[in-house]
Design a protein around this nucleic acid. Structure first.
Lengths: 103, 103
DNA sequence: CTACAAATATCGTATATCCGATATTAATAT
DNA sequence: ATATTAATATCGGATATACGATATTTGTAG
């Protein structure tokens, strides 16, 4: 249901955010996470997420040269991301100060 | 290990943040979540988190009149919150714009 | 065409959220 | 003292992260 406080969609949220900025493959995402966090998520983490997001119709494969499989956001995915962002901000509306201090 | 991208500590993160601002009981936290999200987390969600946080030494019961059991952050909890905030900002450093638009 | 390597896919396992339901505790009202 | 009620605690069950290991696909080099 994910009605109330379910924080379990955060990895999907992050992936959606990344893909929304630039078409990305699983490897692209893993590299970006490494840049941000210092460690790559394991393949067993990222590919199932991509699959689920794809099956939900939020992302879509893009034809591309090379062996990578790039994804782009669908219309549905854009709506989902917007809704998720709103929720995120409702929970963390008071993070602004910390963003100033830590980021 | 929660080394890389484990987003599964977010509820604890939120609870730690709330308690850091004001000593709070489980009910206080549920009410605050309702204010932010429109729905209360179920008791089965919040009390186990409080218990785990307490057993980890991050929060501590405070004597209080009334039937509520208020918690405060411990020194260890303060350190944990600071570290968690830093991690949070590393992942979401590019949320500033959205914070402007949505919050 | 074949070998290689990179990217992707899948599997088994573990833990952290989550919920609803039920039980317990404890302050208060009668 | 007992009943009421709010707060807390616990339980069973579900799903979303996570990992490491293994398998499969696919582009490229030879």
């Amino acid at each position: 249901m994910r009605e109330c406080c379910d924080m379990r969609g955060f990895l999907s949220f992050i992936v959606l955010r990344l893909i929304s900025k630039k078409n990305m493959s699983g490897e692209d995402i893993r590299k970006e996470m490494k840049k941000r966090k210092g460690a790559k998520p394991s393949p067993g983490t990222i590919y199932p997420v991509l699959k689920a997001l794809s099956e939900s119709g939020f992302i879509q494969e893009v034809k591309d040269s090379g062996k990578e499989k790039k994804y782009k956001l669908t219309k549905k995915g854009q709506k989902e991301l917007k809704a998720a962002t709103r929720k995120f901000c409702e929970i963390f509306y008071d993070m602004k100060e910390e963003f100033g201090r830590f980021c």
